[in-house]
């Protein structure tokens, strides 16, 4: 195992390019809360590791678009009055991240995106907010909607020499709601729902977040049921917390509550 503790984004990209050119699939460490224990357990093939901890990608800039670096922690999001005012949906989600002060200090939105776990708090919210990822490699920069980066559980459309340097999220001041179902304080969510304008985005029901357009506020539950019933079997998500049938049963209610919150926030 070789580990590069990059001191700049360029240094990280050079290490990634060299590793990818050698045919490896380097592991990029942002907050470390997911990938470090996975490496310790041997679940991640970590021949080459690029740790971003010293790259300084921890800036959070708030304008009409909120820009967050790859190292911006949930706590930075929670502590920012501007994020609270201009992205209340993101603020609410971050405030409910499991794991206490420590995980909120260490966990990052970019890490959650790249881990692509269906049970994540962050993914449905990022998709609902139409967040874009800034994807960089030694050969250039591209932006990609978060929804397009997510392929399947644990898999993204990132090449071996690419990393996500940050996120760009348009301000979304009013009319949003987030609700999640989980069984214990320290548990991952079972189902999440992020409501924005005329849609609700569900997490924990499929391999990737599901966008459900809402033809009418009164038809939330029916729209969710129709969407879930149309999901191909291979895309339905289940893990040790709940089988898919349970998720299908509770998701309409979780979605309806998120939409109610969004209406109250208007």
């Amino acid at each position: 195992m070789t580990t590069t503790f990059a001191r700049s984004l360029d240094e990280a990209l050079t290490a990634l390019a060299e590793s990818a050119a050698a045919g490896a699939k380097p592991v990029v460490v942002s907050g470390g809360t997911l990938c470090v224990p996975a490496m310790v357990r041997g679940e991640l093939d970590a021949a080459d590791v690029v740790d971003l901890g010293r790259t300084g990608l921890n800036t959070l800039a708030v304008g009409s678009v909120i820009e967050l670096g790859a190292l911006v922690s949930y706590q930075q999001v929670i502590s920012s009055p501007r994020v609270r005012a201009e992205l209340p949906l993101l603020h609410r989600m971050a405030s409910g991240i499991t794991g206490g002060i420590q995980i909120r200090n260490q966990g990052t939105l970019v890490g959650a995106l790249c881990a692509a776990r269906p049970q994540s708090d962050a993914l449905a919210v990022l998709v609902a907010l139409q967040a874009e990822a800034v994807v960089v490699s030694a050969s250039g920069t591209r932006t990609a909607p978060v929804a397009d980066l997510l392929v399947s559980p644990g898999t993204t459309h990132l090449a071996a020499d690419e990393l996500v340097a940050g996120l760009r999220i348009p301000a979304c001041l009013h009319g949003t709601g987030y609700v999640k179902l989980k069984f214990a304080e320290s548990s991952w969510p079972v189902v999440t729902a992020a409501a924005v304008q005329d849609r609700v985005v569900l997490g924990g029901v499929a391999g990737t977040p599901q966008v459900v357009p809402l033809p009418s506020r009164r038809e939330v539950r029916a729209a969710v049921v129709d969407h879930l019933d149309a999901l191909p079997t291979e895309h339905r998500w289940a893990d040790l917390r709940a089988p898919w049938a349970y998720r299908r049963r509770v998701a309409p209610e979780i979605a309806a509550r998120a939409v109610e919150l969004a209406e109250e926030a208007r």
Partner: peptide
């Protein structure tokens, strides 16, 4: 920063 040190690669703490 209050952190869980099992989640930090040691080299990051230089």
């Amino acid at each position: 920063q209050c952190v869980k040190t099992c989640l930090v690669l040691a080299g990051r703490a230089e």
